[in-house]
Design a protein around this nucleic acid. Structure first.
Length: 629
RNA sequence: GGCUGCAUAGUUCAAUGGAUAGAAUAGAAGUUUCCUAAACUUUUGAUCCAGGUUCGAUUCCUGGUGCGGCUACCA
């Protein structure tokens, strides 16, 4: 029970009685008391001014006096402008502290009410994970834990994009230039090896595109008439335009046209068709190379401390998607064009037409998404919604997907939610694989762990730890810092990744919070006979202790709000604020030197509860907290 | 061009329509006979522009400026 809910009926009753009017919830606005004022909670009196028929300040004073007289737990008040700051009795807060002490799972809803699926990561199998995937992974994994803490039965999943033109590109390049290279023969991590051939493909594609363009400029066309005419049209247009921006757009279209006309891309496309036709040789190569990638991913996920409950593979679901498209044609949701391609008309929804099946009959991205959603609902009949953790460049895609699902007649479509997050930018700008500015996930983790090692050794707090324990600690600190850095920002916003700040240990960082936990652990170890028990309600308290209990009491609400907003950032901010308050307390109040046993006991309880809530909140972020550091 | 998102201290981020717009970092000045100084204290410094709604706007609405994203038979 939070303070606002507790006070609401009491205040309502008091006011109704004294002013003979019904008070609505809209009129009763509570908010947190700002820290420059004394008080535990603040009533905004502007909505009540008309009722009392006095100035805001006079209204506040009048109501304040009334509440102190009639509500037991309120000890005093002060009125500043239209704000009535209420001060509660010490024993209220000590009672809260005792409740928190008793509750081992404080803030967490343990009874599960409904089932929800959270999808995150979902990489392509043609290249290794990078920084962008890290934000996705940490976000999705954390949101899964937050929803679980808020009372949902959560299934963590991902859709592995294991088929499609992208993996064919790597396969083709390996076939052409690989000379049989394997992870075993080269000592390379599987995902890195496959990624290498994807880059290789891109290089060849680029050079062939140039050749095609040169040929076209000379008037040599070895392509379909349609392409030739299209090119000539664009070339004429380009010559006419003056505007730089318009020119660039046309140039891009020409590039794309030439791209499509290259022999190597034609080969890759043929390979995709062969794969969909289940050509044995193609399928064998496909499964070998995907196997390499999965081994590589497994290593990365393990080091990131991430896990999934159920994996879906696009190769298993895209056919369901194709079937559903057929069904949709019969239902009149989709229509077929003359060339055989299948579309949906979304102009009524203010959008364009959208392709759902290519003219060659192969599936596109959204085809399998339709199939996967259907498959999931069949696998988990009790499922009450799917959360898709995917970057905001796909906002449009998910809008379309959800409309399609609805049009296909699925009632659960309205429970699908796109957890859209902003891109991660580097100080140098956008990450671009073509320009080699992509930050590799494995490299980044190695870097932050190494940095944590250096910093920890410098401090020398861990003498006597075994080598294994030390390695684990460095990993906990480094990875914790990285996760916190990526999670503390509002997910929906674009963020800037500054490498030197991601390994920082001071300020608003993961290690700062971990340090609070390590200190309290040390304290509790030294206190020896400490065990949780009730604090006497008559115990004296410092203002900072009151602040900490107040902050602790907010944890449940923060968890609920984070679940509602799908925002780990709220948890991160909360944990940091709690840690900061505790550090302030630590600095100004002594525990072991305290002679009053009751006070000493209260301070230990307080410390133990701070450690408990920090551990719990960091768990929701997927971050471990050490006993020593 | 169309659709869409964002704009807050030097920098990176906060702020259910409410008080004197908070933190962190960078800058300046301090704190260690005491439970872990990866800490703490003090201090300098900001709402893109112009209107509108409101008792009250960083927040809502309109227009402008700047920066992203989408606008693929890519995913």
């Amino acid at each position: 029970m939070n303070l606002e809910n507790l006070l609401n009926p009491l205040v309502k009753e008091t006011l109704s009685k004294n002013y003979s009017v019904e008070i609505t919830d809209a009129q009763l606005q509570f908010q947190k008391t700002r820290k420059d004022f004394e008080g535990d909670i603040t009533l905004v009196v502007f909505p009540l001014v008309k009722m009392v028929k006095k100035s805001p300040e006079q209204t506040a004073n009048e109501i304040g006096a009334l509440l102190v007289a009639e509500i037991e737990m309120i000890e005093g008040y002060n009125a500043v402008q239209g704000f009535l700051n209420l001060i509660l009795k010490n024993d209220y807060w000590l009672g809260i502290l005792n409740q928190i002490t008793k509750n081992q799972t404080f803030g967490i809803v343990t009874e599960k009410t409904s089932q929800v699926m959270v999808e995150f990561s979902s990489p392509n199998t043609n290249k290794p994970l990078h920084l962008g995937h890290l934000r996705n992974n940490f976000l999705g994994h954390s949101v899964a834990r937050i929803l679980d803490a808020a009372g949902k039965n959560v299934i963590k999943t991902q859709i592995i994009n294991d088929r499609g033109i992208h993996i064919c590109k790597s396969m083709l390049a390996w076939q052409k230039f690989g000379k049989g290279e394997t992870p075993a023969s080269s000592g390379m991590k599987g995902d890195k090896l496959v990624g290498k051939y994807y880059v290789e493909f891109d290089k060849v594609l680029k050079s062939q595109t140039q050749q095609v363009l040169i040929a076209w400029q000379k008037g040599e066309f070895e392509v379909e008439e349609k392409t030739k005419l299209e090119y000539q049209k664009l070339a004429t247009l380009l010559a006419e335009k003056e505007d730089e921006k318009a020119k660039k757009g046309i140039e891009e279209k020409i590039q794309k046209l030439a791209n499509n006309a290259t022999p190597i891309l034609q080969e890759a496309k043929a390979m995709l068709v062969a794969w969909e036709a289940k050509d044995p040789e193609t399928v064998a190569l496909w499964s070998t190379m995907n196997g390499w990638v999965y081994d590589g991913f497994a290593t990365t996920y393990a080091s990131l401390e991430l896990d999934f409950d159920h994996l879906y593979y696009e190769s298993d679901t895209y056919l369901t998607g194709k079937d559903l498209v057929e069904e949709g044609i019969r239902k009149g949701v989709f229509y077929k064009k003359d060339d055989g391609s299948v579309w949906i008309d979304l102009t009524a929804e203010g959008m364009d037409e959208k392709l759902v099946l290519r003219s060659d009959g192969t599936a596109v991205y959204i085809t399998q998404d339709i199939g996967t959603a259907q498959q999931r609902m069949m696998d988990y009949p009790a499922l009450n919604g799917i959360v898709y953790t995917v970057g905001n460049e796909q906002d449009h895609h998910f809008k379309v997907l959800f409309i399609i699902l609805e049009k296909l007649g699925y009632s659960w479509a309205k429970n699908c939610y796109h957890l859209s997050y902003g891109m991660v930018d580097l100080p140098s700008g956008k990450m671009k694989s073509r320009e080699g500015t992509v930050v590799d996930a494995d490299d980044l983790v190695a870097e932050v762990v190494e940095k944590a090692k250096e910093m920890t050794e410098e401090r020398g707090h861990i003498d006597g730890m075994s080598d294994d324990e030390k390695l684990e600690l460095y990993h906990t600190i480094g990875l914790g810092g990285l996760k916190y850095y990526l999670l503390k920002v509002d997910p929906s916003k674009r963020m800037l990744f500054k490498p030197e700040e991601s390994v920082e240990l001071n300020g608003n960082t993961g290690p700062f919070i971990q340090y609070v936990h390590a200190r309290i652990s040390s304290l509790l170890r030294k206190s020896g006979d400490f065990e949780p028990k009730n604090v006497e309600l008559t115990c004296a308290m410092e203002p900072i202790e009151r602040e900490i209990i107040k902050k602790l009491s907010e944890y449940s609400d923060v968890v609920q709000e984070a679940a509602h907003e799908f925002s780990p950032a709220l948890i991160a901010n909360y944990a940091f604020e709690l840690g900061k308050l505790y550090n302030n307390f630590w600095q100004s109040v002594s525990i072991f030197k305290e002679e009053d046993v009751t006070i000493k006991e209260m301070r230990l309880q307080l410390s133990a509860n701070v450690a408990k809530v920090i551990k719990s909140s960091m768990y929701l972020l997927g971050i471990k907290v050490p006993e020593r550091m």
